[in-house]
Amino acid sequence: MSIIVEKICCSRKGRAILQDVSLMVQVGEIMGLLGPNGAGKTTLIRLLAGLARPDSGRICMFGEDAAKRSVKFRRLMGLVPQENTFESELTIEQSMLCSARLYGIANARAKVEAVCREFQIGSWRKKYPEKLSGGMKRRAMIARAMLSSPQVLLLDEPSVGLDPDMRQEIWQAVKKLKAAGKTVLITTHYMEEAEKLCDRIAFLRAGQVIYQGTTAGMRQKISPQQEISLEDAFVALALAGRRTG
């Protein structure tokens, strides 16, 4: 098993954000985290990355406990957060070289060249992030996360706000990762993205996992008699939460 999340509870300022969340992600699997805004998806990603600590429960990645934040744990995982995290004072290339050095990669320049080629990052890598489009930055962030060849990649809404063509490019990049045997955990609001990319999904609502399985299984669960779209199933699950909540 690549990722094991066991009974995670997390609160902030007395408000429960995640309640008793458990998940398992297999090696080489693309797992999608779905749910309405405020469901706790980004919080779960932060906990998985070791950028925050849960109140209780345990997160393991390839047997390494996230709470210990060990150097070994950090080598296992790459994170692409929602927001741009390129340093405004550095060009994309300089940022990537710095990251390569932080990960102790021998021959950092050659590695950056190789990753840029793989993710089709051309001469614009010499530019500062403020000069680039959202899609370019997002692609460069995925490339930067892949510099250290992590076993697990956490992607927090990688295609939000992107043009359809740029979104397709991001999907191709994620598919390449799966082909390379990487485990990918991705949060998304796009049902098409979940259907096309994810082997399995987990649906979060009000900090709880209320469904885990395939996208087809989720549609079937909501409407056993009649075939519905994943978007309809999503809306039904989200609305059910509002009625009971």
């Binding site: 990355a49 070791g50 950028l51 150097v71 070994k72 950090r74 080598r75 995982m77 790459g78 994170l79 957060p81 927001e83 741009n84 995290t85 390129f86 340093e87 405004s88 990251s99 932080l102 990960y103 102790g104 250290s148």
Partner: peptide, 14 residues
Amino acid sequence: YYRTFAVLRLSPIS
């Protein structure tokens, strides 16, 4: 603002 401290915190250095 820049969320760049996370870049350091995620990297495998002590």
